[in-house]
Design a binder for these strands. Sequence first.
DNA 1: TATTGTTATACTCTATAACTATA
DNA 2: TATAGTTATAGAGTATAACAATA
Lengths: 152, 152
Amino acid sequence: MDKEREDEIDLAQLTDYFGYQLRQAQTASFRDLSEPFRELDVTPGEFSLMTIVKLNPDIRQTDLLRIYRLDKSTMSVAVKRLVGRGLVTQDQLPGDRRFHGLSLTEAGREVLAAATALVEAQERRMEDALGDIDKEAMMKALRRIVGALRRD
Amino acid sequence: MDKEREDEIDLAQLTDYFGYQLRQAQTASFRDLSEPFRELDVTPGEFSLMTIVKLNPDIRQTDLLRIYRLDKSTMSVAVKRLVGRGLVTQDQLPGDRRFHGLSLTEAGREVLAAATALVEAQERRMEDALGDIDKEAMMKALRRIVGALRRD
DNA sequence: TATTGTTATACTCTATAACTATA
DNA sequence: TATAGTTATAGAGTATAACAATA
């Protein structure tokens, strides 16, 4: 047995699976961001959470759950971490006092701006890698897959 | 503030990010498999590990690390769990006694066959969802992205 | 009674560091 | 010294269950 390089390992059907390539691409994207993100002390998941909060001031955790399909306890913990780092505030809203409206702090906006620059740089590298392949068709395909696999 | 449905939440630039759609599609795929896989007591990651082991009998952990880009301790723990469940064997190889060749047991082959059927059913659903979009172009695009983001 | 959110707890996945054994 | 693999430990990320506050 002497498999010196990855190409000599038989991955056969695995590499023909859509799901496998999807995972490879997704983990490559996360891994690529993880180092520069670490300096900002945010994760890719927190970046996307903060982006939604920025675009939707006073959004509630329940709304975020519909997007992320996580358990509410998971979301609560994630929010708590962002609040603890002073990136997000949780404000009592007028009306239903069970709701807590989420918004970015000034520090949160700064971190988000830096993270966004990193993400967009990666986006450009991915677009370049696509070459002649139509990006919009790719995006549409990914959305269709999400729709097909979604079960509510 | 009254955001009753997901579509009313402004996701704006987020949904235009390739990385975001990639993650959505990948987590949809995992989530979709998680329930049927739970009955087999394997994870999607274990499925792909077992597939590689099946195709490459007596493969070593070091070889798997080049494919998965994990820490060797992570791989060791993953292998140990599969061995503990009697799905994989770790055999001393002739020659260098530091290596342990991994192979599937009969039980491992059975579990893998059942898992493969589930994965391939999902693959067909994803292909159907693509409609007129060229699957091969998609696969090529994903491989290019992985290549572009890989740094060794 | 139902909903929003929190907390306690546990399991998985991952990495770092220190280790054993072999080379 | 270097490599293959293990173990101990710790940090994310996730879920379930039980809870408090509010409706």
